[in-house]
Design a protein around this nucleic acid. Structure first.
Lengths: 338, 338
DNA sequence: ACTTGGCACTCGGGAACACAGAGTGCCAGA
DNA sequence: TCTGGCACTCTGTGTTCCCGAGTGCCAAGT
């Protein structure tokens, strides 16, 4: 039914359409690729492919365009991820190596990815729950107010100002701080709730309200900030290729909607592998016409979060996938080293 | 030469053009505004205004459109900043009041401003140099590596990982930390360099290389992060109004170019007042056709940074200016309170 | 000196139309 | 199963035409 030549035709159609952005016809196809058969034969194949739903024609008697299903087949079976050139690899490496802290790593990564793929890049901050507590700091601001700073082994720093129920002097704060660090240093963030559960009982009675308040904020911080933070870059690339003159608005909206982005990147996050979501496979309405290529990254074997790019369905999947995979690997390296 | 009625005509043209987005002709003008004269008279006035460069016609025999110079005159002399409604004020207040830390304040502010003005909002993080050191923390990560965390009175937290020239144990780190805090607590950030200048001499000889390293990173942090951080939101609004179908790319690029944004917001930052920069007054090429309305904000009398919106030259200046001013004030309040 | 009505003129934008070109589907023959 | 040929169907483009909104100017009125 779908023999080898038909697959070759589909591949050729995808490749040509991606590079020219115009519906591709049977004649042009045999000219550009040496398929060894005549246009008429191709036409027959195309008719079959269309019936199967892999390609479609914008109007009667125009060339064919791949459908989402066609792209899917292309990605799954017809294409090979294209590795980056040596020069690109070196560029990535040196660019990422210059990062000074986690924020910087993320910022550089997202820019790099955007530039490399000429698409919109999206990077999720490392998920807290798979990291461990490196240090907890309590900084007295006034006598009824302290700042809680949480530092993790991935270099992430979270801060919250806490309004205390009563005035507390420095030494009590110092004591609480010491206690917190003693309990939690090196503790996995997902373990924190159970670890602190009975902590208030080990505290002098008069300190309990304060301790309870601090712990509740600490837990809140862990939960709320869980994986809330996502950054993107390269929105200008959306306006570049002639695609998206319509729908651009929706895409921009989705990009600013952290929740939507989260779901796009994360919904498949059980696997660290390269994930491609094509057009209508996408859960979000405004993102028909866009595809997402994402990969997990993390230090060592622990997966921390995901990153990827978002672009028109009509994108160069082999190259994009290569870039995303490479960047994910390099970021993992960098993070593992710090 | 430019008498009252001509000014009234200019005002009417700006108002009509802003609301309809179509060149406005003499007839429509007398219909919509009761100017008490005939279209022919208006035509004469318009001819003069055009000669003076305040308005122009896209093609011979089309209506008139304000020039940048025309908008400028409108903003300076013909319009009154429109205060927000009570409901809007309350909404702002409650929305900003929910912020938990500085990051959150900034994030909420930028979203609020974007939503309020239906334009792209831009907020610069408070400039470090006008804040003071609240606390400095050194966290040992490994024996040759510490994390430096700098907390300011505005709630800003900066972090840097430092590679030490030699192994250092906890107690030495604790000692250095104590010393740093003793010296710098409450110190204005702009005063830090001179304050720490002779610090290494007060340190045991064997600690000097480490101390010097830490101080140099601290100074770097102050300088580099000086006012580097800017966030924006509402890019989707660009695609909304029919403006910008062309040039959108440039605008998006500018938005991601921190440096450009900085200059746009900051170049007039000597004054805390409301600043409007219209179209070609703008230093950046890609931003012809866009205007910027910005204001300084800060706690108390100290100006910390600037915020504003960026939109098409054809924007509703009175409303936008009102919104920017109001938000700047509320943010200042919130920051002063924390 | 300013305002007004009248009038001829100028464009831009939309509708109607024709036409070339690319592409298809189908059929009969190899 | 492939191929060449042929008739057919579209889209996109260019042309022409016309309407309407708007202008500039002039001469007359206040």
């Amino acid at each position: 039914m779908v023999d080898d030549r038909k697959l070759a035709v589909l591949r050729a159609i995808v490749e040509d359409y991606v590079s020219t952005n115009e519906p591709v016809g049977s004649k042009a196809l045999v000219e550009r690729h040496n398929l060894g058969v005549s246009p008429a034969t191709i036409r027959n194949d195309m008719a079959v492919l269309e019936e199967q739903g892999y390609i479609t024609q914008p109007h009667t008697s125009a060339g064919r365009v791949p459908t989402d299903k066609g792209y899917r087949l292309f990605v799954d079976r017809l294409s090979q991820i294209k590795p980056l050139s040596g020069a690109e690899r070196r560029a990535i490496e040196s660019f990422l190596a210059g990062a000074v802290d986690l924020d910087d790593v993320v910022k550089r990564t997202v820019r790099l990815l955007a530039q490399l793929t000429r698409q919109v890049a999206v990077v999720q901050y490392p998920v807290l729950s798979s990291s461990t507590v490196r240090h907890i700091e309590l900084v007295p601001l006034t006598d009824r107010r302290v700042m809680l700073v949480l530092i993790t082994n991935t270099g992430r720093v979270d801060q919250r100002v806490i309004e205390l129920p009563e005035a507390v002097d420095e030494s009590r704060v110092a004591h609480l701080r010491a206690m917190l660090n003693a309990c939690l240093d090196g503790c996995g963030l997902d373990k924190v709730p159970e670890t602190v559960a009975d902590l208030p009982e080990h505290v002098p009675v008069e300190d309990r309200p304060v301790a309870a308040m601090i712990l509740s904020v600490l837990l809140e911080t862990l939960v709320e900030r869980h994986d809330e933070k996502i950054v993107f870059a390269g929105a200008a690339n959306l306006a570049a290729g002639g695609d998206f003159t319509v729908g651009l608005r929706d895409v921009l909206e989705a990009l600013e909607e952290q929740v939507v982005l989260m779901r796009l990147l994360g919904e498949t996050s059980d696997s660290a592998a390269l994930t491609v979501r094509i057009g209508s496979e996408n859960p979000y309405t405004g993102l028909r016409g866009t595809s997402i290529v994402a990969a997990g990254y993390g230090s060592g074997d622990k997966q921390l979060a995901r990153l990827g790019v978002l672009g028109p369905t009509r994108m160069d999947y082999p190259v994009t996938m290569g870039a995303v995979r490479a960047v994910a690997r390099y970021v993992s390296q960098i993070l593992a080293a710090s």
